[in-house]
Each structure stands twice: as C-alpha cells, then as structure tokens.
Amino acid sequence: MLSTLDSFPARADAHPMQPRLYRAHKRHRETPDTFTLELEAAQDDAPFTFAPGQFNMLYVFGVGEVPISICGDPKRSNLLLHTTRDVGMVTHALSRIKRGDVIGVRGPFGTGWDVERAVTRDVLIVAGGIGLAPLRPVLYSILAQRERFGHVSLLYGARMPEELLYMPELQKWRARLDLDVAVTVDRGTRHWRGDVGVVTTLIPKAACDPARTTAFVCGPEVMMRFTIFELQKRGVSDENIVLSMERNMKCGIGLCGHCQWGPHFICRQGPVFRYNEIRDWFALKEI
C-alpha cells in the first residue's frame, strides 16, 4: 500500500505518481508530424481542472511517459486535449492511439500563465511552432472574458505553412474584430499568401501599449531569446514577459531532479516563468 503518513501533512494529490486512466476519444492530425489527442476519464467522472500553461504526464502502458502541455479549453473539463509532435518513442506510440484506447495521465503539474495578472492590460501572445499548444488555453481564457483585457494579439510563427497548428481555429480567430492574429512562416512558396519571415518581425508591428503589455511567449528556446530582445526593444518590461521553459522531466513533481535549471525545478517553479525571475539563468549555457 502506498500510504500517506499521519505525521506528514496531507497533500492535495496524495498519489501524484499513480496514473489515472483516460480513454482516447479522438486523435486527429494537425500537421504532418503533430497530432491532437482528446481524452476522457475512463476511471471516474471527476472533472479535470487545470490552469492554462500546466502540463500532464501521459503514460503509454509499457512504453513510457512524456510531459505534454494541456492545450484545451480550461472551461471544458470533460475533455482533456494534448497536441504533441511524433518525435520520440512515447510520442510515436501516442500518435498511433486509436479511439477507445486507454492511457495513463498524471497531473496537472507546474505553474500556469496566470492570465488573471494580464487583466486590463494589452496582451501579446507570441508562439513559435508547436509552442502555440500551451498558449491556446490562454486564448480560450481571454476570449471567454474578452472585455476584461485591452488590445489582444496572437503572433504566430512556424517553419512552413503546412506546419501551422489549429488552422481552422486560426481562421476563426482571424475573423474576430477583437483579436489581431498575425501569422508568419520561415519558408513560403507560391501557395502561401501570408507573411514570410521570422515571428520576431511581427513584434514591432503589433498594436499594443508596451508600458501596459503582458507578453506570453512559447516556442523553441532560441526563438524565445530573440522574442525577448524584440519585446524589450518595444519597451515591454521583463516582469511582463512570461515564458514557458522545457527540460527533461520524469516525475513532474520536483522529485526526480531531471528538470533542474539552476535553482529551479521547471516542473514545479515552472514551466511558466516571468522573465525577470530567470533572466540570469536564461543567459547561461548548458545549465
């Protein structure tokens, strides 16, 4: 028996290492190598509540476990959504999941974007590649209470047009009058009529008042570094640049040691950090 001892304070999740069973409701391809899994509880009906930016550990029985950010609508607690890229053994196994298959889920873990702190402010959501997935719940949250925020822009960059996530939704968002959506790709061909250029080129043109702007940034670390330069150039302060970091994770609860980044456990103090908290570590190599 895995017992919690009386002499130690009880925690919210007494068995954080025990996976709960979830059934695949749907899996659909987003791009040639990414897909979205829709999961529903197979064990109990307890609603799954999470904050935008948090992640789950997804466990394929006998294969392994991977940390994947939650990319669904926090308000729709019956379906758990994860978009991931088929790049490793576990994500490959996930990419072959069929409707009805059962996997294990642990979570939600980590810190969220804290959308509440951006209320009344202008918001820049800067996403690179699959980095849009952990930011999508931010958009859902903001759009559900749009009047509480100032100007809101989504700046999204990807490698090629075929690698853009959530195309139907992007088109819907683009049609909204209360949301600016700018999409750019690093490489374009004649079929692509949108912007070509790196995502950072969208920042100088984004409508916002830098003094009252919160930027939520997620993408590869190099992309985030250049994004920070551009945001700083515009005058967005470091404490209002919020980003999500990635490191190896095995447990998700700060005990396995893998995700250490200087004094931070990315799974606990992160993955979402304010830039002013991590500035010094962000600049160091091989940390």
């Binding site: 190598d33 890229r85 790049v87 690179g128 590649g129 699959i130 960059g157 990807a158 490698r159 690698e163 690093d186 490489r187 250029g197 790196v198 950072t200 080129t201 993408g219 590869p220 190099v222 992309m223 250049f226």
Partner: peptide, 18 residues
C-alpha cells in the same frame, strides 16, 4: 541589421525536427 538578425534566426530553422 534587423534583416540580418531575422535571416540568422530563419537560418537556425528552430522549429525543425532533429
């Protein structure tokens, strides 16, 4: 300089699958 920096970032191909 802005174009050069953007081109460098573009060259890094940061979203590529390794």
């Amino acid at each position: 300089i802005e174009r050069l920096e953007a081109t460098r970032l573009q060259l890094l191909d940061v979203y590529a699958v390794h």
